[in-house]
């Protein structure tokens, strides 16, 4: 088995797949360099990410298949699941042997598996669209912290840009330690040293009215519940407990 070790970037993954084609190799596996565990009999190739190869593969996939195939691959990649690189490799290989879009060929096991991952990604992306809670900082930035199961923030950007065009905002992924910041003109990726008490809306960082609005919201939430219809199971299905810590209507003591 030959191991292709890449830098963890999407371009790096595409470069790896490109090279596997170029050298017509089989019995290969693609791994992130950072999580790779050396084996005694392994043959390793360290991949140097090349924008050109990555773009060529991207174009190839879209031309031979469709834009949907490419977006499936990208989304699956964002799952960061162990072994997803090999799955993407298999999918790509299947696409190139079939010479057509295979995105909906669910009876193929690689396609099905990818589509199931993509579904999870989609769900997580929507959860973030829904569960992001901005808090207004002293310097007038609407600031939210999240910790999604998958690395979906790149998928959320467009939605928030469109919606909150007239306010500065930042959504920060605590798990992966990076955020997207919008300054009224453009978005950029940022990395911050956040204080440990960032989840409490202390007046050190946030506007005095911030807590008032959280409380109003929590109050609203209580008042809008119909007690004769309570259905705990359904509720937790919709809002799994692990998300509660980001929802002020859930954790805030009034």
């Amino acid at each position: 088995m030959t191991y292709f070790l890449y830098d963890g970037s999407f371009e790096g993954l595409l470069t790896s797949i490109f090279e596997i084609y170029e050298y017509k190799l089989d019995k290969v596996s693609i791994c992130k360099i950072s999580t790779y565990e050396k084996g005694f009999f392994n043959k390793e190739i360290e991949v140097i990410t090349q924008q050109e190869k990555s773009t060529r593969l991207q174009k190839g996939i879209i031309k031979m298949g469709s834009a949907l195939d490419f977006s499936q691959i990208y989304r699956a990649f964002l799952s960061e699941l162990k072994g997803v690189e090999d799955l993407i490799l298999n999918y790509t290989q299947y696409l190139f042997t079939e010479k057509r879009s295979v995105a909906k060929d669910y009876a193929n096991k690689h396609v099905l598996e990818i589509s199931q991952i993509v579904k999870k990604i989609g769900r997580e992306k929507h959860r973030m669209d829904a569960f992001v809670r901005f808090r207004l900082t002293k310097d007038n930035i609407y600031f939210a912290t999240v910790a999604p199961d998958f690395n979906v923030l790149p998928l959320n950007e467009v939605h928030f840009r469109k919606r909150y065009a007239d306010q500065k905002w930042c959504i920060y992924d605590l798990k992966r330690n990076y955020g997207i910041f919008y300054d009224l003109h453009k978005t950029e990726i940022i990395s911050l040293d956040l204080p440990t008490n960032i989840l409490s809306s202390s007046e050190e960082f946030f506007k005095p009215e911030e807590l008032h609005f959280q409380q109003l919201w929590k109050n609203y939430f209580k008042s809008t519940t119909i007690s004769s219809r309570i259905n705990k199971k359904l509720h937790q299905q919709h809002v799994p407990k692990r998300y509660w810590k980001y929802l002020s209507e859930k954790y805030l003591q009034v």
Partner: peptide, 19 residues
């Protein structure tokens, strides 16, 4: 470039305990 949009499917931002 104002505030907000209402396109496509709406988002559920939370769920009450009655689901």
């Amino acid at each position: 470039n104002g505030l907000g949009n209402a396109e496509g499917i709406g988002i559920c931002h939370s769920y009450t305990p009655d689901g």
